[in-house]
Deep mutational scan, measured.
Amino acid sequence: EEERTFTNEEEARKAKKEAEKRGLRVTVTKDGTTWRVRIG
């Protein structure tokens, strides 16, 4: 499991799409101005 943080919503969405392409489970949460993308 890996967690990545982004300040840019577009980049967070891109990371989510890429992980889904690899067949991984992805959770995206917004924490104030930060987007957290949890993969795995």
Rank of each mutant, 00 (worst) to 15 (best):
E1S: 11
E1C: 15
E1I: 15
E1T: 13
E1G: 13
E1R: 09
E1V: 14
E1Q: 10
E1K: 08
E2G: 08
E2N: 09
E2W: 15
E2K: 08
E3F: 11
E3H: 06
E3D: 08
E3S: 08
E3V: 13
E3L: 11
R4N: 05
R4G: 05
R4E: 06
R4I: 14
T5K: 05
T5W: 14
T5Q: 07
T5F: 13
T5I: 14
T5L: 12
F6V: 02
F6T: 02
F6H: 00
F6A: 01
F6G: 01
T7K: 07
T7A: 09
T7C: 10
T7D: 13
T7V: 08
T7F: 11
T7R: 07
T7Q: 09
T7G: 08
N8D: 09
N8S: 13
N8G: 04
N8Y: 04
N8K: 06
N8P: 01
N8W: 03
N8T: 13
E9R: 09
E9I: 10
E9D: 03
E9A: 08
E9S: 06
E10C: 13
E10N: 09
E10M: 11
E10K: 11
E10L: 12
E10W: 14
E10H: 10
E10A: 12
E10D: 11
E11H: 05
E11R: 03
E11M: 07
E11K: 03
E11Q: 07
E11S: 06
E11V: 03
A12W: 04
A12G: 01
A12I: 01
A12H: 01
A12M: 11
A12R: 00
A12F: 07
A12P: 01
A12N: 00
A12S: 02
R13P: 00
R13I: 15
R13T: 12
R13E: 13
R13A: 10
R13D: 10
R13K: 11
R13M: 15
K14I: 11
K14T: 10
K14D: 09
K14E: 12
K14V: 09
A15M: 09
A15F: 15
A15Y: 15
A15R: 03
A15E: 05
A15P: 00
A15W: 15
K16Y: 13
K16R: 08
K16W: 14
K16P: 00
K16H: 07
K17P: 01
K17H: 13
K17N: 12
K17V: 13
E18Q: 08
E18T: 06
E18S: 06
E18W: 13
E18A: 09
E18V: 05
E18N: 06
A19V: 03
A19E: 02
A19H: 04
A19K: 02
A19M: 12
A19C: 11
A19G: 04
A19T: 02
E20Q: 08
E20K: 05
E20C: 06
E20T: 05
E20V: 06
K21V: 09
K21M: 14
K21I: 10
K21H: 09
K21F: 10
R22M: 12
R22L: 12
R22V: 06
R22F: 07
R22G: 04
R22H: 08
G23W: 03
G23K: 03
G23S: 03
G23Q: 03
G23P: 00
G23N: 04
L24K: 05
L24Q: 06
L24S: 03
L24E: 04
R25L: 09
R25S: 09
R25N: 07
R25E: 07
R25T: 10
R25M: 09
V26I: 03
V26K: 00
V26D: 00
V26L: 02
V26T: 04
V26Q: 00
T27R: 07
T27G: 02
T27K: 06
T27Y: 10
T27A: 05
T27E: 07
T27F: 09
T27V: 10
V28R: 00
V28G: 01
V28W: 04
V28Y: 04
V28L: 14
V28Q: 01
T29K: 06
T29S: 07
T29C: 09
T29Y: 13
T29R: 07
T29A: 05
T29L: 09
T29I: 14
T29V: 12
K30A: 07
K30N: 10
K30G: 05
K30F: 15
D31N: 07
D31Q: 08
D31K: 06
D31P: 00
D31S: 08
D31I: 13
D31T: 09
G32K: 03
G32V: 02
G32Y: 02
G32T: 03
G32M: 02
T33C: 14
T33V: 09
T33N: 15
T33L: 12
T33S: 12
T33I: 10
T33K: 11
T34K: 10
T34S: 09
T34I: 15
W35F: 05
W35Q: 02
W35P: 02
W35D: 01
W35H: 03
W35A: 01
R36H: 09
R36L: 12
R36N: 05
R36M: 07
R36Q: 05
R36C: 10
V37C: 04
V37F: 04
V37A: 01
V37K: 00
V37P: 03
V37T: 01
R38T: 13
R38A: 08
R38L: 13
R38K: 11
R38V: 14
R38Y: 12
R38S: 10
I39F: 08
I39E: 02
I39L: 05
I39P: 02
G40Q: 14
G40L: 15
